[in-house]
């Protein structure tokens, strides 16, 4: 699998996700600066976590208008898979490639801790997990509170596009298990085509037991298998 990681000014998980891809898929990605106007041939574009443009205006708002994003939109339209992690998810909603918006956490605090997540629906990005399975990735964000209008939410539910939710230890979607106030406990959604996936948690931070978990390793290995 050929992957590209886009680097924005203020990205800070770009190297982490590049290392995760190299270690878990055996194929090192190409890093592309946001000012580039074209993408090299690839199967997957990753928009990494961080604070692109210092989160000025709104998280992801300025990055969404970076020169490279025109190529990312074109690649997405051609069916190239796009993965947005944390700030990358915020950029995908600001670009309109995914619906809804990520607003300030309901608790007004930066949350940084491992969270339990339930995998749902079918998505090439979660091919490594069984639907209904609970996994654990860490979150680290200030604007991870997913909001959308009731009609869009109903559509996402009906189409099975809510593929990752915050859950408690028993796998239930509860207020206590929700780190940021996201509607319906949403941690990750896909596009209608299933080829675009945005999630707030960080799989690249759990790619081995020395990092506190290896669910991220399963995630990236299966993404490579599904997209190769």
């Amino acid at each position: 699998m050929k992957a590209v990681v886009v680097v924005f000014p203020g990205s800070n998980c770009d190297r982490d996700v590049a290392v995760a891809l190299a270690r878990c898929t055996g194929c090192a990605p190409t890093l592309v600066w946001h000012g580039a106007t074209s993408l090299p041939p690839c199967d997957l574009v990753v928009l990494p976590g961080g604070f692109s443009y210092g989160d000025y205006l709104r998280a992801g708002a300025i990055a969404a208008h970076s020169p490279i994003m025109r190529s990312v939109r074109e690649a997405a339209a051609r069916g190239i898979a796009v993965l947005g992690i944390c700030n990358g998810f915020q950029i995908l909603t600001e670009t309109g490639l995914l619906p809804g918006a990520l607003v300030r956490n309901a608790g007004l605090r930066f949350v940084c801790r491992p969270v339990d997540l339930r995998v749902e629906g079918d998505s090439p990005f979660l091919a490594g997990f069984t639907p209904g399975e609970c996994i654990r990735f860490p979150v680290a964000h200030m604007e991870g509170n997913y909001q959308t209008d009731p009609e869009t939410l109903a559509g996402l539910e009906a189409e099975g596009r809510i593929v990752l939710r915050y859950v408690d230890a028993e796998g239930g979607v509860t207020e206590a298990a929700n780190p940021n106030g996201s509607v319906a406990g949403i941690a990750g959604i896909t596009s209608a085509s299933r080829r675009i996936f945005g999630l707030m948690p960080h799989p690249e931070r759990v790619i081995g037991d020395e990092l506190g978990g290896s669910d991220g390793r399963r995630f990236f290995a299966a993404v490579a298998d599904a997209l190769a």
Binding site: L57, R58, A61, I62, H65, T93, E94, P99, G100, A101, V103, Q147, T148, D149
Partner: peptide
């Protein structure tokens, strides 16, 4: 529409 506001929210 294009930048200053996010019409979703």
């Amino acid at each position: 529409e294009e930048l200053l506001a996010n019409p979703v929210i």
